[in-house]
């Protein structure tokens, strides 16, 4: 028999409050191209991106600490598949432990030849040093910066 389908899509938008902590972090990126973390007083860990409380201790964080701009790769992946609403492949992104931080922050890796997966994965290795690059025009967002391999 004839089997029918109905097309439906969800069209709802959200205006998510960032709160004081993330707002301040993004303003520093936008206006000063600087990155900060928050220190968890109980564990001493500097959380980057900054959280107003630690999910390990459930204590409020108490101190801003400037971090980066250099750091090391903690993990990465290189995407070769097109996913709807996501960027055209290939692209590389992952997590970087910025200097003076204790947790890693996500971001894109740019300036790397990704055409050969195996070779690209040799360039982007866990532990490799990277530097943060900031966009000329910044809006106060995580995409205002990305990582490039530290020049030798």
């Amino acid at each position: 028999m004839e089997l029918l389908t109905r097309k439906e899509s969800w069209n709802i938008a959200y205006e998510h409050a960032l709160g004081e902590t993330a707002s301040w972090f993004y303003v520093q990126i936008r206006d000063h191209a600087k990155l900060y973390g928050r220190r968890d007083p109980k564990s001493g860990r500097v959380l980057v991106p900054p959280r107003s409380f630690s999910d390990q201790t459930l204590e409020p964080t108490t101190e801003w600490v400037e971090v980066g701009p250099a750091g090391r790769i903690e993990t990465f992946t290189i995407v070769y598949e097109q996913f709807k609403t996501l960027p055209p492949p290939p692209y590389a992104f992952g997590y970087v432990l910025l200097d003076r931080a204790d947790t890693a922050i996500g971001g894109f890796f740019r300036g790397i030849d990704l055409s050969d997966p195996a070779q690209a994965a040799q360039t982007l290795k866990v532990g490799v040093r990277v530097n943060t690059r900031f966009a000329e025009k910044r809006t106060g967002d995580i995409l205002d910066f990305w990582f490039e391999l530290e020049s030798k």
Partner: peptide, 26 residues
């Protein structure tokens, strides 16, 4: 002021308040 805290932070605040009300820690 809904913008002062993210939803995550507001949930953190209400959870802590309930613990305080109970006189308990996490």
């Amino acid at each position: 002021d809904a913008k002062q805290r993210s939803l995550e932070e507001a949930i953190y605040a209400v959870a802590r308040a309930a613990l305080l009300d109970a006189g308990l820690a996490i």
